[in-house]
């Protein structure tokens, strides 16, 4: 009867729960273990880290990793610089545009990347004429791709603070509008901004569709090419990138929530 009082599932259900957890977790984990096993195979059944070591000596891969990290950083900067002031401005001064901005930001979720790239091909002819043939020009599309994720993170951050009061207090003390964004909003929603950045980095690390069809050598494109020549190295890089993305998202789970004990909450007590 203790189970009844606590409203907890019974013993049979607990066993079922654990069994499902084990079976599905095994299905999800075996391919990852296989990657580790595959990438550490040496000659005649020995273990070897040769494939992992070759990541560092393969100039194409090193170049691509470097490009990808730059792309991730640029995408984060561009997204935040475009999105944050716009969202603050809309919430403070143009609240009737809020639904429109939300719709525009979530729109990329309903337009598959493969469709977007069809329409982007002619635009990128112009972009490369303006900015050169660098893979870094992908920053523009990537900023579009991460928009829904960044929007959600920032929106939840903004909803946790009383933006109107904070902005008015700052304005009445002589702060400029850029100052409001940089010195008031940014410190107060730091957690949300970090969340937006982490999810953007994870997405940029794994992007393949657009970069391969626009013919830029990003990390995933190079991994795919390497896979045809040297599978072990490609598998090693893939595993490394997956682990990195996992680490980013795991950190995200700690900073995602609105921070307790932030300046504004303390003022309220």
């Amino acid at each position: 009867m203790a189970a009844l009082g606590m409203g907890r599932p019974g013993h049979g259900e607990a066993v079922l729960r654990r069994t499902i957890l084990l079976v599905v977790a095994a299905y999800l984990l075996i391919p990852l273990l296989a990657m580790l096993e595959f990438s550490t195979r040496g000659p005649r059944g020995t273990r070897s880290l040769a494939a992992w070591a070759r990541i560092g000596t393969n100039p194409d891969l090193v170049e691509a990793i470097f490009v990808q990290l730059q792309l991730a950083a640029l995408t984060v900067v561009l997204t935040l610089v475009l999105l944050l002031p716009t969202m603050v401005l809309v919430q403070l001064r143009l609240p009737w545009l809020r639904r429109t901005i939300e719709f525009l930001c979530l729109l990329p979720l309903t337009i598959p990347a493969i469709v977007l790239v069809v329409g982007l091909a002619p635009i990128y002819a112009g972009v490369t004429r303006l900015f050169g043939e660098s893979a870094l020009t992908l920053t523009f599309v990537y900023a579009v791709l991460v928009l829904p994720f960044a929007y959600r993170a920032i929106a939840s951050g903004l909803s946790a603070i009383d933006l109107i009061t904070l902005a008015e207090a700052a304005r009445s003390l002589g702060c400029s509008w850029p100052g409001v964004v940089w010195r008031i909003v940014v410190p107060n929603i730091r957690g949300a901004l970090i969340a937006a950045a982490l999810v953007s980095v994870a997405l940029v690390l794994g992007e393949f569709t657009i970069s391969s069809l626009l013919a830029f050598d990003t990390l995933q494109v190079v991994i795919n090419l390497q896979g045809k020549r040297n599978a072990a190295v490609a598998v090693a890089v893939s595993l490394a990138a997956l682990v990195l993305a996992f680490a980013l998202l795991y950190v995200l789970s700690f900073v995602g929530q609105p921070a307790r004990g932030s300046t504004f909450v303390e003022d309220d007590t």
């Binding site: 999800l28 075996i30 391919p31 990852l32 296989a34 990657m35 096993e37 595959f38 990438s39 999810v199 994870a202 997405l203 690390l205 794994g206 992007e207 393949f208 569709t209 995933q220 991994i223 795919n224 896979g227 599978a231 490609a234 598998v235 893939s238 595993l239 990138a241 997956l242 993305a245 996992f246 998202l249 795991y250 995200l252 789970s253």
Partner: peptide
């Protein structure tokens, strides 16, 4: 679970294909 799900569901792409070739 949340972090692993996000990694495998949204950011996998090419890497998952290699995971299955290794398996």
């Amino acid at each position: 679970v949340a972090a692993a799900s996000g990694t495998l569901a949204q950011f996998g792409g090419v890497m998952l294909a290699f995971a299955f070739l290794a398996t």
